[in-house]
Nucleic acid binder design. Sequence first.
DNA 1: ATAATAATCTAACGATTATTAGAATATTGC
DNA 2: GCAATATTCTAATAATCGTTAGATTATTAT
Lengths: 222, 222
Amino acid sequence: MDARKTKDLLYEHVAQIGKAVSSPKRLELLEILAQGEKTVEALAADASVSVKLASAHLKVLKAARLVEARRDGRNIAYRLSGPDVAALWVTLRTVAEEHLVELKLAMDSLFAAPEKLDAETRRSLLEKAKRGEVVVIDVRPAAEYAHGHLPFARSMPVGELRQRLAELPADREIVAYCRGPFCMMSAEAVALLKQHGYRARKIADGTPEWQAAGLPLVAPTP
Amino acid sequence: MDARKTKDLLYEHVAQIGKAVSSPKRLELLEILAQGEKTVEALAADASVSVKLASAHLKVLKAARLVEARRDGRNIAYRLSGPDVAALWVTLRTVAEEHLVELKLAMDSLFAAPEKLDAETRRSLLEKAKRGEVVVIDVRPAAEYAHGHLPFARSMPVGELRQRLAELPADREIVAYCRGPFCMMSAEAVALLKQHGYRARKIADGTPEWQAAGLPLVAPTP
DNA sequence: ATAATAATCTAACGATTATTAGAATATTGC
DNA sequence: GCAATATTCTAATAATCGTTAGATTATTAT
């Protein structure tokens, strides 16, 4: 076979991955799936699209082998086909944040405080959490916490936070995280906490970012 | 502003990066640019497309801020807008190799020998090259070598190799590399060397892969 | 078996994208 | 200033993609 055609074929295959990540909704689905397995219905709801549209997008992601499907009773559950797919999402988002001024501006206007973590900050947060100097809360839905979470983090879904405020110590700083830099759950949680007199802040990391930085998660014990 | 619309905008920005890497020719251009700055004409020739088409693709890459342009006399030279862009290309290609069986098969049929390097193999290659036990040759065009190359590697462009065979020691193993796993220059070089009685093999790494693995390149001294 | 549910498939539309040709622009060398 | 060169812009067409509605499939509960 002619060398040029062979090369074209190789790039074509990689471009299939590129095409899969060229749609905003598919990226959102990937980010949600990076939090753990979900049914089509749940994915559609989380991404604010119809089940039909979610299904169509999932089909593309499946064709590119970025996700896998599994039947579970009357539902079909999707999951990422590997941890490298979550890492790809983090890489894409990071490159976008680094080079697209528009995105940087949009994020600055959304989240007033700079909250990006570097290797040193992550390690020191872990230390403080271990010693109990800060309380790290995971404000995602409980199922996502169960699938994997930051070490020493407590599950405190943003929807239940108001009723469960009493569980949090008033004398220590609360550090909230959620799905990642684009997720607004932790911002909502911090607003509520501050309103009730707590010292609280959020971090940009979700579990995909934490893992991409080479740090361990606490995995489920099945 | 409504939270849903704000989120949509964020994913839209990231999808712009995705769109930029959703075309085979644009990926090929990125891979070539990962070897150093090039003019539109050179890029078009390397990627086997018309200058017009190359220009159109470069425009998309520029809009996504993955590349930058600079006028140099009567030419316009393009370069990647950062090392993270080369890393993105490596990540995409790696995810594709990992999950797309079709790509794995295509590569196996192209390159008989498994030649993938892991952290340990890379380190030991570096050691052997340092001690002179193997001769590492960079068979890319000289300009690409000049832009950055593996430590202890000699420039020996595949086009000049036949005339310069005498420069290579017959008693030591020759290790050839080129632009990366999709590039066929090193395979061509190894075939020529073996034909002339040399012990030669190639490695899959190009400078982008080497750098993405966290290892240092020898940069130009301007 | 049958009804109910979850998800996909098919078909269709309008909106993008890739590619090419021809015109236009900017720079260099004279 | 003028001709030559490198690149981009404009316009046009064919191909592909996103989205929706309606029909279909596979499973569970009765």
